[in-house]
């Protein structure tokens, strides 16, 4: 039996593990895929206070090592179901069931697909959600990036270093991304901004992406772009369906919680990108981890 089982080993989950361990609580972190969460795809972090520059991989590895060194247990198991009985929580995975006094849901969010026909079949065959992973395989080719946030702009910037030409397709004419980054991208010669536009169809030749059809939402006109790669960066979607008996979800699927990170079930807390909040950043994920862990510790102390 653990004091706290934390679901998700991203920035929020591992921060919670650090705070829980330092509060003298035994913590188990369950992760279905790989530790680190979304940040591992970011080559350069330059907005974490006190750290001028670090790679996402190094940041995540640092968090992981810090949590483990403090005594937290990290297991590569996906939490499938959580039930509450007699004030205890049972967390089921495919391999074993873990018992805990409190639970922190830090499930994060995953890449949002465009929802187009053939999109899933073409992943790794022209469709990518990770420019820093896959960019080099498009060396010398013409590619497109879809999105208007920091990830899309960073992806486009990264790809200009490998690709002959990069189209940045965004459904509006203003960017959510940092103005400084957008300006830096504008200065690149091999970038073309395709604004007020959405990707409406994927063209396939011999099992690989060969082009996309783009529609201008203002003029209603469609045009074909012959690209060998499409990098989709249109945001994230949460993945909390398995836990909807324990927590309330908003219409988008995020866990509803205020700044105290309590959910509708006593003893279940939440942290990071998986919950309703305005700002989803590394710092706010770490902050949530701390608040949730301390709230969970206080809850456990009150049990006895």
């Amino acid at each position: 039996m653990f004091d706290i089982v934390i679901i998700g080993a991203g920035t929020a989950g591992l921060s919670a593990a650090i705070y829980a361990s330092r509060a003298g609580k035994s913590a188990l972190v369950l992760e279905g895929k790989a530790y680190g969460g979304q940040i591992i795809n970011t080559p350069d972090i330059e907005n974490y206070p006190g750290i001028a520059h670090i790679s996402g991989f190094d940041f995540a590895t640092g968090l992981y090592n810090q949590a483990k060194a403090l005594g937290a247990v990290v297991k590569m198991q996906q939490a499938l179901r959580i039930t509450k009985a007699d004030g205890r929580f049972l967390v089921e995975t495919r391999r074993e069931t873990h018992e805990a006094k409190a639970v922190i849901l830090a499930t994060g969010a995953k890449n949002r697909p465009l929802g187009l026909e053939k999109e899933e079949a073409l992943i790794g065959r022209g469709i990518s959600y990770c420019a820093t992973c896959d960019g080099m395989f498009y060396r010398g080719k013409t590619v497109a990036v879809n999105g208007g946030g920091n990830t899309a702009v960073e992806d486009a910037m990264f790809l200009t270093g490998y690709c002959e030409k990069v189209y940045l397709i965004h459904r509006r004419d203003a960017f959510r991304a940092d103005e400084k980054e957008v300006e830096r991208l504008r200065e690149k010669e091999n970038v073309e901004f395709v604004l007020d536009s959405v990707v409406e169809a994927l063209e396939e030749t011999d099992g690989r992406l060969s082009g996309i059809r783009v529609k201008n939402v203002k003029s209603g006109e469609s045009s074909e772009l012959p690209v060998g790669g499409l990098f989709i960066a249109i945001g994230q979607v949460p993945d909390n369906g398995a836990f909807q008996d324990l927590v309330d979800l908003d219409e988008k699927g995020y866990i509803i919680a205020g700044e105290d990170l309590k959910t509708k079930t006593e003893g279940v807390f939440t942290a990071g990108d998986c919950r309703t909040k305005e700002v989803r950043q590394l710092t706010t994920a770490a902050s949530d981890g701390a608040v949730a862990a301390l709230a969970a510790s206080k809850y456990i102390d009150a049990l006895t």
């Binding site: 895929k33 790989a34 080559p43 991989f57 995540a60 590569m76 990770c130 820093t132 992973c133 080099m136």
Partner: peptide
Amino acid sequence: WCGPCRMLAPT
């Protein structure tokens, strides 16, 4: 240089 690849490495 692939973060996810390095994350997968221990598995």
